[in-house]
Design a protein around this nucleic acid. Structure first.
Lengths: 208, 208, 208, 208
DNA sequence: GATGAATGAGGTTTCATTCAT
DNA sequence: TATGAATGAAACCTCATTCAT
């Protein structure tokens, strides 16, 4: 057998243990970073022995993947309420504002998680894929929402990506403390206005 | 004399040696990543002894900082020509297109450098600052350019940050292969249109 | 009751379990080697829990001893038919040939078992003893056979040991692929001739 | 660079250090066995740091190979004098006796080395090859010697292999204490006689 | 100034054995 | 009896940094 046997925990106690490892790792990775956290620390923080870690995970990188999974599922649940309702054409402005606030809040509350995991995504294609998939799901949901509110689907995906970029930029500038609270307020006004007119914009295909 | 004395090279040979170390490190960091490059490799690639490295740099992290400096100065020189001329109000569309293309080209040509250094910026505030300062210089230059072309300076900085976010998003999506060449073309049309109307947009301050 | 108590299985189910462990270990040791087989694998292959192994065996080394026992008993049964008949003086040539072929066949069919267990015998006096005893039984049987065929018993034991060495050498050279099939054929001719004349040889005691 | 840079020591001090590691390992492997000797012990015994070991050797197995090399070169030098002279046809008896004594002496003096390294050869094809090559060189030398003493070269190689097997068997039986000194004496008489008549024997090719 | 051999702490992973259930 | 999760010591190897020459 080439790779190690990984236990897939089914009993309650085992699942709890596996989850404890993931949660402890999540916290340590945020606090100290993935590379600077060692498996002994993880085991200790999860209140298990070092050996047992390798019953549930192939290796340290395998833990990272589950930690990223946890992070993304937390992100996802934060957007669930905002995205699960129906909207009218007039609500666009508010939707954008809400999403912007949600993202800023979630990132601000956990700057180190955001920074650490984004960095790892850049360094590691496997992690990258997790985020790409998450982003795709998120954009697809928003697209559905807009289409059912009768926005034109023409160039909609491109528009949404761009809108996403705008929001990310704001978050980034704020959590990296490039702009302060006041500047954030001003930027938000511009951003919301920019995004709403972007979504409603008629794109004139250029002739190359 | 304390041991921590770092030589500030003034003689030609010394400067050459220090530069050789930086250039060699730059290449290795792109190729293998910062964490996976060791100092022995750097010394070898730079054709110097391992010991001498510590005459010019405090430690490995110190090398990284200079490598980032080199990376940024290269980026900066790529934008110099585009940004050093005067523009007319009608040129905005073209200016945006040019900047977008310049950024995409520069990132695409060196995806690994971009990914590696962005990741390090997220992980390390000191590195982050280098990029923040670069971004600030870049935005300031563009702002000057626009103001001298008589664009309104109202909310201009915020608009430019947002425009920057749009461009970064496109680059990101393309170099991470989230979108392909065809999608990039479509997105560029939307992005240029979005940015130009953003710059010209009248911002209506909201009443909270 | 001390914890070191090893169950001597008397009930059918228990014996089956113990045997299953031995057989599974035998196969794994041949396939992967003793050191590279872990107890979890053994338990899994034997369809028992890891804990139960320690009811039947003191430790991993204890399993090894039983595996060697199995190996030797299998070897022994391969020689049984050849050695259980009566022979005439003229049959010596054929007897030698048969034994040689039997040994080559048995070793060739299971090169990894042979190599692994010989190695362990060299490393571990306890295992060594199993093989020494086996060899002694084998030689004693052959000696009986020859004496009842009226061969001289003078120096017979020494001769048989030497004959054994000749046969072992051939096996070794062949299964380690030092000699190929053709060379084996030639060597077998020489070996059989050498052994028969050795057995019949009058030893002239030297004067030291 | 995939594999680690291995320093090939050229200066006297470096060579001494590398040799010290090999010699220390040789002794430890004999004493405790290869698997039960760890790199920290090796470094300590050689009076170096653990890290430096990996400047001279790729890994632990690499050390083993050099240790085997040392062992074989020591064996080889023990046979040099015996094999470097010319012999006459009448000397065969003495030559065989001398070689037998040389092998017994060399193995007896270092039973643990012999056992350990033979075992490793069985477990590891790379190590096996070292011994196969050594054996081939040895047999080739003896063959030359016999041919220049005008022994028939017909089946000579096969005969020598067989003779080698006889000698090995005696060594084995003696150093594993299967036979005692007295039995060894008796066996030697038989063996020498068997080998000499084997060498001079006319092989009658069988008709299959 | 320059060399490159040397250091040694520290990281990940394995596995025989135990023990609560 | 039986389970299989849990233990934790120990192994190999790496590498930033130092220092004798």
């Amino acid at each position: 057998m080439p790779t190690n046997e990984i236990r897939i925990p089914k009993q309650k106690r085992s699942i709890e243990k596996k989850d404890a490892i993931i949660v402890a790792s999540y916290e340590l990775f945020c606090e100290k970073g993935y590379y600077k956290t060692n498996t002994a620390e993880i085991a200790k923080a999860a209140n298990v022995s070092t050996g047992i870690v390798y019953n549930y995970f192939h290796d340290k990188h395998d833990i990272l993947k589950e930690v990223i999974g946890l992070y993304i599922s937390r992100l996802e649940s934060e957007f669930r309420t905002t995205l699960s309702r129906q909207i009218q054409k007039e609500d666009l402005h508010n939707l954008v504002k809400e999403l912007l606030d949600a993202l800023i809040t979630s990132h601000t509350m956990n700057v180190s998680a955001h920074n650490e995991f984004m960095a790892l995504a850049l360094l590691d294609p496997e992690i990258q894929n997790y985020f790409v998939a998450f982003e795709a799901r998120l954009l697809a949901q928003i697209k559905e929402l807009l289409i059912s509110a009768e926005f034109s689907s023409c160039f909609l995906e491109e528009k949404l990506r761009i809108a996403f970029g705008i929001i990310e930029q704001l978050c980034h500038d704020y959590i990296q403390q490039i702009i302060d609270e006041a500047q954030l307020s001003r930027s938000k006004i511009v951003a919301v206005q920019a995004i709403t007119s972007l979504i409603e914009m008629d794109v004139e295909p250029e002739i190359k």
